[in-house]
Design a protein around this nucleic acid. Structure first.
Lengths: 124, 124
DNA sequence: TGTCAAATTAGAGATATGTCGAAGCAAGTG
DNA sequence: CACTTGCTTCGACATATCTCTAATTTGACA
């Protein structure tokens, strides 16, 4: 296209510019990545949403299984992943098992990638 | 431990309670999950953070490669994943290639899992 | 033109993930 | 006690992901 003379980086200098905020450390990244991995699946995203949208916050597995074209073991597997990541918790009530969301964890994840994040506040 | 008599669900009724917000549809989930999958890796989280934290917003690949104990092809692969997800964009400037963040996309992801989300606002 | 440096692409190998059927466990009911 | 229902665990399989080495592309420069 046209000549691109952008003032952002001085081509004579080194290829890098100074940092505007504190980037995520290796250990912080290792700690947070599993949280995002837990929700990085369409089934688990919908499970989380279905659980969160329930009045009272507790949702029976039978409800969740019915919302998908997947077998109960598969739903159970995804619920286990979400629970091990700390995003949901569960309780047995007779024959049924209920799951509920832990909103603090979601809120922390949201803040981490949001506009006010101390580790991602570059061009926001 | 102690008797758990929770008033949230009537044990005589069906196992389900009504919904409090609109859960994520199958197609919405399929659309959003790849975004979270893109950041669901410690290396890519740090890459994103390093890029975002650069003053001016543009970061040279050589800078990024230097920050990891990984080979250039591996860094290149992760940058490609982030770019294909739409989280970053790039431009070639002579020998060097610069990447920058697209904050709108991060902001959208943050809002989706944040306390005010219309699909995850259950118990927040 | 030839050479060098930066970055990407291609291909391979090890590990992780998503899904299922079969089996097991826990709790209610006849 | 036996039987049924709801859910989880186990084991297997196909696919996806992460990382590397080797080869390729792109641009700068003598």
């Amino acid at each position: 296209m046209s000549k691109q003379v952008l003032p952002i980086v001085d081509a004579d200098a080194a290829c890098c510019a100074p940092l505007a905020c504190e980037p995520l450390s290796e250990s912080e990244a290792a700690e947070v990545a599993p949280l995002f991995k837990a929700i990085a699946d369409p089934v688990r995203l919908r499970l989380l949403s279905l659980i969160a949208c329930h009045e009272g916050g507790k949702t029976c597995v039978c409800d969740l299984t019915a919302a998908f074209d997947l077998t109960p073991p598969t739903i159970s597997h995804h619920l286990k992943v979400l629970k091990q990541a700390g995003l949901i918790d569960s309780e047995r009530r007779g024959t049924w098992v209920y799951y509920w969301i832990k909103p603090e964890v979601l809120a922390r994840m949201s803040a981490l990638i949001g506009p006010a994040s101390p580790v991602l506040a570059g061009t926001a």
